[in-house]
């Protein structure tokens, strides 16, 4: 049980890092990919919390489709962001 809690804490801290990184980066493509990483971390966390259905949905929708859609949009816009 204590192992699980360490795992939990580790992922929770990584989540904050990924969220900040995806907003920090100037290149929007990198930002979208880091947001995909954030989604996968979230999915891992939920699978560990026992919400398997939510984790599965997040893995397919959040990390799959929304990253693809974000990248598809950014391809048609400017890649650089000013802040």
């Amino acid at each position: 049980m204590i192992g699980l809690e360490i795992f939990n804490t580790f992922i929770l801290l990584l989540l904050v890092v990924a969220a900040v990184a995806s907003l920090w980066v100037r290149d929007l493509l990198v930002s979208a990919v880091v947001f995909g990483v954030y989604s996968f971390l979230m999915c891992l966390l939920w699978a560990e919390m026992g919400a398997v259905d939510v984790a599965f949905t997040e893995a397919t929708v959040g990390a799959g489709i929304s990253t693809v859609v974000l990248v598809a949009t950014i391809f048609h816009l400017r890649r650089k962001s000013n802040d």
Partner: peptide, 21 residues
């Protein structure tokens, strides 16, 4: 088992997206 309409539908849509990519 975990799964259902939303997940299956998204996977099915992803297969067409893969063709398009």
């Amino acid at each position: 088992s975990p799964g259902g309409g939303f997940q299956g539908g998204v996977l099915m849509g992803a297969s067409f997206i893969l063709i398009a990519l």
